[in-house]
């Protein structure tokens, strides 16, 4: 489908998903502010979702929805399983982010700071 430019498309889709995963992990490992850590987790989430959908893509395939005109002709369709998994993962990702942010708010109210290098006491 993409002719000579197959490599460019492969690089851009796979490359951006790998880059998002690595950037997010860097944020989680290095940053000291709790909000930055949650942002990093959310970026990793996006990268993994993109990776799943890209793996399920088939060149020249259509979306896995049967309209009346194509129901008998059985056209080439992309893999529906990764799409269903990613659908679940996005909603769960929202729930995880919401709970993480509520913990951030709670920690901030208690310690009056959101930087993990300044939260020293183990006991609340």
């Amino acid at each position: 489908m993409f002719g000579d430019y197959q490599n460019v498309v492969t690089m851009s889709v796979y490359g951006s998903s790998i880059a998002l995963i690595l950037i997010g992990l860097y944020g989680v490992l290095i940053k000291k502010h709790l909000m930055k850590i949650v942002i990093g987790l959310s970026v990793v989430d996006s990268g993994v979702n993109l990776m799943f959908v890209a793996v399920g893509y088939i060149k020249g395939g259509t979306a896995p929805i049967f309209s009346p005109s194509v129901i008998d002709s059985k056209p080439l369709m992309v893999d529906p399983v990764p799409q269903a998994l990613v659908l679940t993962a996005i909603v769960i990702g929202f729930a995880v982010t919401a709970v993480a942010l509520s913990l951030v708010i709670r920690l901030f109210k208690h310690h009056n700071t959101a930087r993990i290098d300044q939260i020293k006491s183990l006991k609340w």
Partner: peptide, 19 residues
């Protein structure tokens, strides 16, 4: 981590018919 991710992606060519 990135090196091994790229190695893993080399095994799954983009757009190949895996169904």
């Amino acid at each position: 981590v990135g090196f091994y991710l790229i190695q893993a992606f080399n095994l799954v060519p983009f757009g190949a018919n895996r169904v």
